[in-house]
Amino acid sequence: MAAKSTAIIQMHHVDKHYGELHVLQDINLDVQKGEVVVLIGPSGSGKSTLCRTINRLETIDSGEILFEGKPLPQEGKELAAYRAEIGMVFQSFNLFAHKTILDNVTLGPREVLGTPKEEAEKEAMDLLARVGVAEQAHKVPAQLSGGQQQRVAIARSLAMHPKAMLFDEPTSALDPEMINEVLEVMVGLAKEGMTMVVVTHEMNFARRVSNRVVFMADGQIMEEGAPDEFFDHPKTERAKDFLDSIRGH
């Protein structure tokens, strides 16, 4: 297997099927510490599934996934502890509907890390201020706009001091005018050196902040490269077609 590597996330020969459908085919991907990797590709290409396998929301059939050189725990306390180290932001926000914004952010630290209430709340308020929704702290999720909810979801992940963060189409469910407020928060995170795996269709974001773009189709990684290189000179026909289609040519 891979010799001494600095990669924080490593995927080797990962395969996954949904029945007949081969959704991940021999995936090999390393993500370095502090790297921002953007996964793009047409819907059904397996990019979301790939992202979700990294914190085992999806299981894999064969191959292996390593985090900091250790294989992913399969279950129980070890798995929960592992997930606490990886932040995840979903397309549909998935805030806890019965809890206030503040409680959404403090739940993890208090229940998983055992942070005392006051300390957790103080830090949560700082995080909420940072993502610009501090005034909403005592509302419930349904009272917030989509953009605000997604920023809270990011704060909820950050409260766990994650070593890496996964973003599964974080802006796809948002109205156009709210996309930027979420992307700005993500740009800030990237600048601070957060390790990020981002599934997105936001090409400007990919160009601006990513270190690497990975293009997927039909469950395979078709090509990967530096963003400028990829967007300006895609190597495969599939990537060219895809880029044309989203640019509206």
Partner: peptide, 21 residues
């Protein structure tokens, strides 16, 4: 994008590891 749909019933317990199985 997941091709399968999970009901809440199944979602409550995640895909089991070897011990759970």
């Amino acid at each position: 994008m997941s091709a399968h749909t999970t009901s809440m019933r199944d979602a409550l317990y995640e895909a089991p590891g070897p011990k759970t199985r």
